[in-house]
Design a protein around this nucleic acid. Sequence first.
DNA 1: CGTCTATTTGAATGTACTCAAAAGCGGTGG
DNA 2: CCACCGCTTTTGAGTACATTCAAATAGACG
Lengths: 200, 200
Amino acid sequence: MLRKHSTDTSTILASVQKYVKLTEEESALFISYLEPKSVIRRTLLAKEGEICRHSIFVIDGALKSYTLDKNSDEHVISFALSGWWIADMYSLINQKPGILRIESLAESELLLLSKQNQEQLYERIPKFERFFRIITENALVASQQRIINNLTLTAEERYVHFMEKYPYVLTCAPLHNIASYLGMTPEFLSKIRRRIATRT
Amino acid sequence: MLRKHSTDTSTILASVQKYVKLTEEESALFISYLEPKSVIRRTLLAKEGEICRHSIFVIDGALKSYTLDKNSDEHVISFALSGWWIADMYSLINQKPGILRIESLAESELLLLSKQNQEQLYERIPKFERFFRIITENALVASQQRIINNLTLTAEERYVHFMEKYPYVLTCAPLHNIASYLGMTPEFLSKIRRRIATRT
DNA sequence: CGTCTATTTGAATGTACTCAAAAGCGGTGG
DNA sequence: CCACCGCTTTTGAGTACATTCAAATAGACG
């Protein structure tokens, strides 16, 4: 492969242009605010107790965010695949120590947008205020839908629903992470899978 | 009481000015986009299957949003007290049939902002794009925190946490609604309360 | 006071968890 | 190429947290 040090910005531009139209100059300014980063598997991009300084956009690869409880058990809060944003929103907004870790599940190509640059962007190109409003709204809807699923569905139903909605996550995240995301133990998820397999 | 037909807009203006500064004219325009509404207890403000056309701001009183599962059991998604916004975000954003009901828990004074007026507002006063971005961000953080609590805490811990964080909700919402919000049965919540009471 | 709804109680049950161990699955090195 | 190691996934037995169902009690309102 040539172009080793050039970064593929088409994914992120397409994702923005889905909601707001950008001129060439605006696109260029936006890109100039982003910092490319390549990481190998298991790289920590944010850590609990530290202040989260960037929003992360995934060009390619996969990340997860999670908390550790008092027994140091992992609880996966979200996955982020190609085209998704991820951050410890609480820490990023309030610039206070966060509670999440963000870690790569695979080798990944990322773009970092610092809090400072993000606010600059809002001032220089107000359209981005709209863009981030819209994707935050969508994230809120997804988050509420997840709460509804946790309240109304059994463990098995949640797993089936997850498989249908995010089949590609299954290809890069280990099962115990998915169990954690769905709010069940890995052992129980394994039993659910057997139940489904022997039934069909 | 006099001033029967005038509406108290100070609560909502204060809530907006917490994040963006408005001129007199901007405030007046904003207010002109709002439709006051008084409701008695148990009034339905949105219904599953219908398209949600307004964001609702609570001046005074209390609302809840909830879904009905296949057994017609209620699952409370959110409460909204004085100073809070509530809506079926999914339906409002996509203008598709929603899955939530919104209902008053008590006599309430509300302000309705129609989807159309909200978009007008974004065009005429871009600051509102920022305001709604910020409150949506805050709502997202709260929603994710709730997911974390559901994943990491026992039923009793969730109840204690809720009491500390939203003590005033307890004063206007029936216990079975709180049980539902916390993801447990009313019977079990009752037992938790007894356990706590007899312990202290 | 009676009616309606909300809350509490108790017994039986079930869904999902814990703990311990075995099996599978790559990767690495001899 | 096989042996071994570390990690993930599966299995099983016993257990616990929370549910279901039924009924009693308490509160609110006309």
